[in-house]
Amino acid sequence: MFCEKHGDVKDRIFVIELDSLQREEKPAAFHDLLGYPFWLKNEHNKIRKLGFPEPQKTDSEYFNRLIDLASDVAQALSNFKPEIATKTETFIPKATIYVAPVNDALYDQRANLVSELRQFQIAVLPKKNALTADTASELDKCSHFVQLLSADRAMGIPQQQLAIAEKAGKPVMQWRDTQLNITADSINPEHKQLLEHKTVIAAALPDFIRMVRETVLPEKKPVIDSGMSQGKNMIFVHAGQEDYHHAQRITDFLFTKGYGFTLPQYEGTPERIRKTIERGFQFCSILLILQQRTPAEAVEDQLAEAQLHAQKCEPKFDILLCRDPTAEALGFIPPNTKLFNCNSNFHEHCLEQFLQQVEA
């Protein structure tokens, strides 16, 4: 009767899920509605209701989802009754990114990501954790594609989401928990490849959120007299997206010391990204590669490409590799590569040592 009275039930019906149900098990009117899962699946694949039999103060998952529900209900009421809506601060985003909808195991992580990014005026599509009919059209409105991954293959949906983002030419940032054992036999082989993808960052979630924020809204570099760089070396600071914030800070420091620099750019089309990397190899007299969180495979590819360019250039540029001791071990380092073990922040003391080697 309710559905007959209201032709469009979107934002009028709120489905509270106390158990796991497949789409076809729900009434047809609920198929395309957002569900609020008040349950979790434990390590034995058993369903555990949140807040059962009574919510406890420590039931953070229960209260997080209750807050989401209350917020969405309040927003719906505000939309239908604008005359009683409370005055709220206008949200004007500085950027909009696509955060792929996730399965129930990652519900809280996505909610935390969206909430923290909003504080820095970064809007997220889709607004709700639900698949939409046209992912490609939503991606067109976004600068970046962000995806959270777990061991659950989710019927191949994460692979499909990534394929759409790559086809659209969007910069990709993917996350998985550092505690996730990606070698487990229980993980689908195709999904295991996704978990080992070159853009997947294994990190604590707060660190990943910071990386997303700094990548989407990079800090503007101070304007410094360009005359300082005359007569000095041109340094190509090469880093994967995982360590890009370190590279930006290092180039600020180098420029104050009178050095020219070039950085790869990870925004724009693949052709644009490739052009900035080629330009770095073309004009540098010194290549500095950074590795803290960047996967070994990506760094090895950077070193191999650098070796090929160095052999073609006259005079050849020096290759220096600055690594955090905790970084993933490398299986390929070309000859005559100078290796520096640096701390995780690549602070100025380490850079001073680097410059001493350069100027020796």
Rank of each mutant, 00 (worst) to 15 (best):
residue 4 E to N: 06
residue 85 A to H: 00
residue 268 G to C: 10
residue 248 Q to S: 00
residue 113 L to D: 04
residue 22 Q to H: 10
residue 186 S to M: 05
residue 235 I to Q: 04
residue 10 K to S: 07
residue 249 R to L: 05
residue 118 R to E: 12
residue 169 G to A: 02
residue 187 I to L: 04
residue 73 V to G: 13
residue 284 C to T: 05
residue 237 V to Y: 10
residue 1 M to A: 13
residue 217 L to C: 04
residue 221 K to V: 02
residue 319 I to H: 00
residue 123 A to Y: 00
residue 229 S to N: 09
residue 7 G to M: 09
residue 323 R to Q: 06
residue 240 G to Q: 02
residue 19 D to A: 02
residue 47 I to A: 14
residue 178 T to W: 06
residue 52 F to R: 12
residue 196 E to N: 09
residue 37 P to C: 12
residue 341 N to Y: 08
residue 207 D to M: 05
residue 297 E to H: 12
residue 313 C to D: 13
residue 192 K to I: 09
residue 275 K to C: 06
residue 356 Q to L: 12
residue 8 D to R: 15
residue 37 P to D: 10
residue 131 L to A: 04
residue 16 I to Q: 12
residue 194 L to W: 01
residue 186 S to G: 08
residue 191 H to V: 03
residue 170 K to D: 07
residue 206 P to C: 12
residue 128 K to N: 01
residue 226 S to R: 09
residue 137 S to T: 07
residue 16 I to N: 11
residue 225 D to P: 05
residue 333 I to V: 09
residue 222 P to M: 00
residue 88 T to M: 05
residue 162 L to M: 04
residue 168 A to L: 06
residue 158 P to N: 05
residue 44 H to I: 06
residue 93 P to F: 01
residue 163 A to R: 05
residue 133 A to H: 03
residue 72 D to W: 02
residue 105 A to I: 02
residue 287 L to Y: 08
residue 206 P to N: 13
residue 334 P to Y: 03
residue 11 D to L: 01
residue 100 A to G: 07
residue 324 D to G: 07
residue 266 Y to N: 03
residue 1 M to N: 14
residue 232 K to R: 10
residue 241 Q to I: 11
residue 29 A to F: 12
residue 295 P to I: 06
residue 216 V to W: 00
residue 234 M to D: 14
residue 48 R to W: 04
residue 118 R to Q: 11
residue 15 V to A: 08
residue 233 N to G: 12
residue 225 D to V: 03
residue 124 V to R: 00
residue 57 K to Q: 14
residue 204 A to T: 07
residue 284 C to D: 03
residue 334 P to V: 08
residue 175 W to Y: 07
residue 251 T to S: 10
residue 176 R to V: 04
residue 283 F to A: 13
residue 240 G to Y: 00
residue 23 R to H: 14
residue 252 D to F: 05
residue 5 K to N: 15
residue 327 A to Y: 02
residue 100 A to H: 06
residue 267 E to A: 10
residue 149 L to M: 02
residue 106 L to W: 04
residue 76 A to F: 01
residue 227 G to I: 00
residue 31 H to A: 11
residue 317 F to M: 12
residue 100 A to D: 05
residue 251 T to I: 10
residue 250 I to V: 01
residue 109 Q to A: 12
residue 188 N to L: 03
residue 258 G to Q: 10
residue 173 M to D: 06
residue 175 W to P: 08
residue 174 Q to L: 15
residue 315 P to M: 07
